[in-house]
Write a protein that binds this DNA or RNA. Structure first.
Lengths: 335, 335
DNA sequence: AATTGTTATGTTACAGGTAACAATTAAAAT
DNA sequence: ATTTTAATTGTTACCTGTAACATAACAATT
């Protein structure tokens, strides 16, 4: 498609008979330009519909006032809230968010990191624990601050803000055992690192209390429908199950719906537990038992940390590298 | 934070004793460079961790191979699916998506459009029907293709792909009346254009059948909790209500949960209807009645249209400007 | 031996905004 | 009237990659 050639500062300058430097001044600090030219320029900008151009900023390696945020999935409610938390901090500070998602794949993450770096973001927030070697190398060479979020069970590239998935699953499992459940099955989907870490915590808790850990794992992406399927399989494979612990709320909610269809009483015949404390789960009947995680708070802290590192001289920075924001075990009505 | 100065083509060139032109050739078409230099350059790039730089692309107004996508909200499941639909088309074609959201505000939309244009996106997909004057002006000056999506009740800037919200609400209301419901109340939140259009369709259908339209509208953002509150208010304000038609599934689902808490049988005592056909609603018990909209399909078509206009000479384009993808009335189990 | 062709690399210019410095003009102070 | 100061605008250079053209070196052909 033919481009109407967008107008540049030069075009504005030509229109008012000045150099582009003067127009640039008008935009940056209008008081440095005389009253007369000021109004002429303002008029020309209006008329020609000037749109700022990021290119020169990038070229002279000025700050871009943009930060890159990588989340595994946009469908996942959890990350929508994390993003909100981040932007609550970064927007008012004048930073634009460049958002990208990578479908839980480190290889796609690598592409996205390259993409974000090619636009000279001033900082990066990553949601994944594992990165490709080239991802790490690129970030290192770019020399920008990086904050990783969500899980804290791995050494950070620079800074890490999240909670302990292993311990959270351990604590929840323990709470369930305390409540009297014995045949607890763990349901996992989308076999990413977090799912595996939770399995680890669950297994540890079960073994410690001399109970047999049982799990059904699939690499299919989480959905309500999958939760339904998995509980059906659970009933078949382990008929004596009295409680299922799902890796996330989507599975748990789907499982509850399936129980409602089959007239299985929750929690009397089957207790069902999720992870993260989504809106749906908290509003539904019965209210879903879940590990409540402070997603928005994680976003806030990640944004704050990133900005303060961006704005500091590298050597005067001395933050703790890992921040544990914790979580809350909530047994709701479904367990 | 001090930058380690990312390496440019010049740095690579210096490292191998060539000019950056040669390195550029290596990246674009390796065969044009001799075997010997090729391996030296490859080594240097590896070592110095070269990251491509978008700036020169933008500067010389080359195609950026990125498209801008504006959605009102990331929390809204509907748009997550639209985005997936768009990217299914644009990703394989080599285009990066620059995603931004504007919280249903035309003023913020304007800022986001400026932001996207400042990065020289090759095309734009907008989800809103109303835009500020400056938004329109900027888009016009930028001379790039624009596809608007979702509602078709307004004249398009260029192309428009969606469905008729008024007619959809009209048809659903009619279907409910046909089913025997008489005291139908419309619940609206986040008073954006789409909510108002649906109200219009609902009102028309009620009036046509000699029934009194009743609605409760609030400008609060939709949520399950709000759906619960609104049905409580409905029961108070209009005790004889036998059916509520919610502007979206979130409200409807929240309302159903509230009914379950209060032991109000759905649909026997109260029919509840939503809009869009979300996963939750389709999985829950009772299955939610809703207007099923082809979000992903809208995304597909929008992506296809945008790319084909980008790739064409402006004058040879001759598509229909408005595409109506329709919708499906689904009465599920809740009506 | 002279010409043509081929391959590999270099040179120059350009895109748009801004920092740093220079120059001009007008007003103020001597 | 002359110098000083302030206010306004201009000039130059730079950031990075690439298109377009130029050159160099050598092989192949006449």
């Amino acid at each position: 498609m033919k481009k109407n050639k967008r107008s540049s500062l030069q075009d504005i300058a030509d229109a008012v008979g000045m150099t582009r430097m003067t127009v640039s001044r008008y935009l940056k600090s209008p008081t440095k330009v005389s009253e007369a030219t000021r109004s002429k320029i303002s008029e020309a900008i209006e008329l020609l519909g000037y749109i700022p151009n990021k290119a020169p900023d990038l070229l002279s390696n000025a700050k871009s006032f943009s930060i890159g945020v990588l989340v595994p999935s946009l469908t996942n409610q959890v990350f929508a809230q994390v993003i909100r938390g981040i932007e609550e901090i970064t927007e008012p500070a004048g930073y634009q968010t460049m958002l990208a998602h990578y479908g839980y794949s480190p290889e796609i993450e690598e592409k996205r990191v390259e993409y974000l770096l090619s636009y000279h973001v001033d900082g990066l927030i990553l949601s994944e624990t594992t990165h490709t070697e080239r991802t790490r190398q690129m970030i290192k060479m770019a020399g920008i601050p990086v904050v990783e979020i969500m899980d804290i069970n791995h050494p950070p590239i620079q800074y890490l803000i999240g909670f302990d998935n292993i311990k959270a699953a351990f604590d929840m499992t323990n709470a369930l055992i305390d409540k009297g459940y014995k045949n607890i099955v763990y349901l996992g989907a989308r076999l990413d690192m977090r799912t595996k870490l939770k399995l680890q915590g669950y297994t540890a808790a079960m073994s410690k209390r001399d109970l047999t850990p049982r799990s059904i794992m699939t690499d299919k992406p989480s959905s309500y429908g999958l939760g339904a399927k998995l509980i059906v399989q659970t009933l078949k494979d382990y008929p004596d199950t009295d409680c299922i612990f799902c890796t996330n709320d989507d599975l748990a909610i789907g499982a509850i719906f399936e129980c409602q269809k089959r007239n299985i009483a929750v929690p009397q015949e089957m207790a069902i537990v999720g992870f993260h404390g989504h809106d749906v789960g908290q509003s539904m009947v019965p209210q879903l038992a879940s590990v409540i995680t402070p997603r928005q708070h994680i976003g806030n802290l990640a944004g704050e940390r990133l900005l303060s590192v961006i704005d500091s001289k590298q050597d005067e920075v001395d933050y703790e590298r890992v921040v544990d924001v914790g979580y809350k075990i909530h047994l709701g009505e479904s367990a």
